[in-house]
Nucleic acid binder design. Structure first.
Lengths: 234, 234
DNA sequence: CCAAAAGTGTTCCAAGTACACCCATGA
DNA sequence: TCATGGGTGTACTTGGAACACTTTTGG
């Protein structure tokens, strides 16, 4: 890397794709912008990185500032990619944004915070990503694609359910995020047969009708061999 | 994203993990640093992003400046991730680096260029990544891991061979990058059976001994269904 | 007893593995 | 004709898909 004491000056931000399931629908956390540019439009939460903080720390901090959610609610966080096209932000500064995907199971309703921007959960089905500010449509679709892909070969799905969960609940995660239904019987055998994916507990839960289901916790495995498979995209 | 007219000031760089095969060994392009910090140590090529250029453009530009390689030699480029821990660069500026993986088949010997830094190809087997400057050990291993993983489910391997190639040559790519040998017969059937992965040409090539092999070009497919599989990591 | 959800058994088929064997060429 | 790498045949095994069937609960 070359070095000149005079180098171009950038602003660095983080943008957050915060995903959760609410009533079996995949939802993303959006804020309504209070100031220009794009005032009144929907946008991903995010903000400037401070000079003395790690990029991941900035992601957690902004999440907390914009929603009141602490790190204990985050079940998964992963860097997505960095968006830096000149002009992606209309302001005169050159703004490069490091995007993150954040997953959780029991996120409550967000609490409006310092920035006075109203944060809320929006089901992806109800959202026209074209309405989003900046290049956030691209960031959001990249983030959702990443989550969909990682369900296949990692234990990511367990980030969307509570500590203890039934196999149907886990199947519901796959069905909601992939948007297709899976055979309950084969799913059951597959996940219980993958070593160290699920750890059975002593508990059972009876949810009204039907035979009570056994509860599991997530096991130590993060990669699934063989992977879960969804329909082949053309 | 919130906005304050006073925001922290960052330098943004690109770092490049440039990979190619030379004599069936996976090699990475490294430079020997000419100036402090880390003068005399090996490092990944890279440099500051300019205010008016795209991040990907900066990657291509730095590649050209440090090696003389033009974009026509690049068979694949992909953003890896962004490294931004405070203190990852010992200089007082806060430096955030967007890392890229760049692949090619016929990269020549690099030409020493403007920065007077000597660039050269180093086989990964011969390299102790602990010798690298900055956090480049982490970036390099992340980049190689990414390439290894993407061989499984994309047509990335064709970025390491010439326009026209034999199936053995393609198999050699997998063997070199995965470090394991594959059954030639099954490999043949698998890649020829994957729709739109390979396009046969009229040409054959006879390489000294043995029956001449048919030459193929890469087909339009970028994702492989089903994927190529390597041995299960424990 | 009936409905509903959990969970098991069984059959069929697609795909991977191992390896024997044939093909086409240069020396 | 022999060595060598290209390429095919085939039997075995593994794992996914489909779906019938049994189990366990609440009403």
């Amino acid at each position: 890397m070359s070095f000149r004491s005079e180098h171009p000056v950038f602003a660095v931000t983080v943008d957050l794709v915060v995903l959760t399931l609410r009533e079996r629908r995949l939802c993303v956390l959006l804020i309504e912008r209070g100031v220009e540019p794009y005032a009144g439009q929907l946008a991903l939460p995010g903000g400037f990185v401070r000079l003395d903080e790690d990029l991941e720390h900035a992601a957690y901090r902004e999440l907390h500032e914009e929603t009141g959610f602490g790190p204990e609610l985050v079940r998964g966080i992963e860097q997505l990619r960095t968006y830096g096209a000149p002009g992606r932000d209309p302001r005169p500064e050159r703004v490069v944004s490091v995007a993150w995907v954040i997953l959780g199971a029991d996120f409550p309703e967000p609490v409006a915070a310092s920035d006075a921007a109203a944060a809320s959960w929006v089901a992806l089905d109800d959202l026209d990503v074209g309405d989003l500010a900046f290049d956030h449509a691209e960031i959001l679709t990249d983030g959702v694609d990443r989550a969909r892909a990682k369900l296949e070969y990692t234990s990511l799905a367990t980030a969307f359910v509570a500590e203890e969960f039934t196999i149907s609940e886990l199947r519901g995660v796959y069905e909601a995020i992939w948007g297709e239904s899976l055979d309950a019987a084969n799913f059951q055998r597959k996940v219980t047969g993958t070593p160290n994916f699920l750890v059975p507990t002593d508990h059972r839960i009876s949810t009204g009708r039907g035979r009570p289901a056994q509860l599991f916790r997530r096991g130590p495995t993060t990669e699934l061999h063989p992977p879960m498979r969804r329909g082949i995209p053309t």
